[in-house]
């Protein structure tokens, strides 16, 4: 769409329009733009975490093959969170690869351990999908960069 202003004559889509109509179109475009910015801004905001995660990957540095992932989950009061169902999912940073997955089992209160088969060298992103005993679902994400080839 093109809005052209020349000597107080306003054109829209090739036809002459009134000044009021031109202002209305300009305002609509501005509102649309601000709305889009708002949607993008809201989308990128992150909520405050109520649960804290810590993770550890062995071996270090990680290599192609089996990687053991330990996840420690604690609540706001820093108490271990037990009885959660923890699933691991590894994705490469590049598209075109299928994800690898595994389940982490609770080895002691609030500590969960699982394995992922890292199929290729490079950068991985690990998603920890947690379902708490009360049914609440959480997702934690960390990067496992520089996985080396054997």
């Amino acid at each position: 769409m093109h809005l052209r202003v020349a000597s107080r004559t306003y054109y829209f889509n090739g036809r002459v329009i009134s000044r009021k109509e031109a202002q209305k179109i300009q305002k609509s475009a501005l509102v649309l733009f601000l709305l889009l910015c708002g949607v993008l801004a809201c989308h990128r905001s992150t909520p405050t975490p109520s649960i804290t995660f810590k993770y550890n990957v062995t071996p270090q540095p990680a290599r192609v093959g089996e990687a053991t992932i330990d996840v420690e989950i604690r609540d706001k009061a820093n108490q271990p969170v037990s009885g959660a169902h923890v699933e691991l999912e590894g994705n490469m940073s590049h598209p075109g690869m299928s994800p690898v997955s595994g389940v982490a089992r609770e080895i002691e209160s609030g500590n969960y351990r699982g394995t992922l088969q890292l199929t290729m060298a490079g950068d991985w992103i690990v998603l920890v999908n947690v379902t708490l005993s009360d049914g609440e679902r959480l997702q934690y994400r960390f990067e496992l960069n520089g996985v080396r080839s054997n």
């Binding site: 690869m97 060298a121 490079g122």
Partner: peptide, 12 residues
């Protein structure tokens, strides 16, 4: 060569 899908280079 073994393929490495990496974005990180330095210190990765």
């Amino acid at each position: 060569q073994p393929m490495e899908m990496r974005g990180t280079i330095l210190g990765g």
